[in-house]
Amino acid sequence: MRRTAAALVAVTALLLTGCSGAADDPGDVLTVYAASSLTAPFTELGGQFEAEHPGVTVRFSFAGSSDLVAQLQEGAPADVFASADQATMDKLTADDLAASAPVPFATNTLEIVVPADNPAGIRSLADLESTEVRLVVCAPEVPCGAAAQRLAERAGVTLTPVSEEQKVTDVLAKVSSGEADAGLVYVTDVRAAGDAVRGIEVPEAGSVVNVYPIAPVTTAVDPSLAQEFVDLVVSDAGQRVLSRAGFGPPDATSGDSG
């Protein structure tokens, strides 16, 4: 019995150290916290960064911007933070966690997303007003939901969603599974979702542009490395990758993407 218990403890210890051993190599790992919508282009940029900096591993944590800021405020170790909107980045700067002033690096606009066969025959924002249409949006508490609310106000339409999801991916999942007739998500999400869904451009979307800021975090292990990643994102090479994913240039005032 005693031997079994000792073995259990030993195995547990081994598993735990095994997990953290790989993660705690100081200096050689750059940890980037980025909004979920940045998953594809940032993963590509991470590969480029590793190629240009031999020996450096870039690790990403992709999640909702507000979730990420909450983690940073609780002391999560990150080197760079890229947010899906200014309001969320403001929370980081308000807590003096940004090592330098955040730089806008991309813009994103909303689009209507429908299942590939568009069962409800949606063509415009006004079509979403019908209570027959099962519409899913993001909750106003998260950036994509706040943007949807502003868009509805600007366009003068009243939206009655059947669900207010917490993440863009949840909205997409409900549309691609055919559960919902339509959703409001970012242009880049439609592009990343592939053939299961179709995007419908919204002329009014140009008036509601989400600006994505990026900043090195004060807890960065290697501040100069963190700054170099920020530089890569705002560089021409970085902008090309982002534009391929559907993001607009940071100074875009119109909603034109790509």
Partner: peptide, 23 residues
């Protein structure tokens, strides 16, 4: 959250409200 969605008073139960409030 996967099956029912999240809407105040209809499908947003307390655990879902807690998760959303954290935002």
């Amino acid at each position: 959250i996967t099956f029912a969605g999240s809407l105040q008073g209809r499908t947003r139960t307390l655990p879902l409200e807690i998760y959303l409030r954290r935002e």
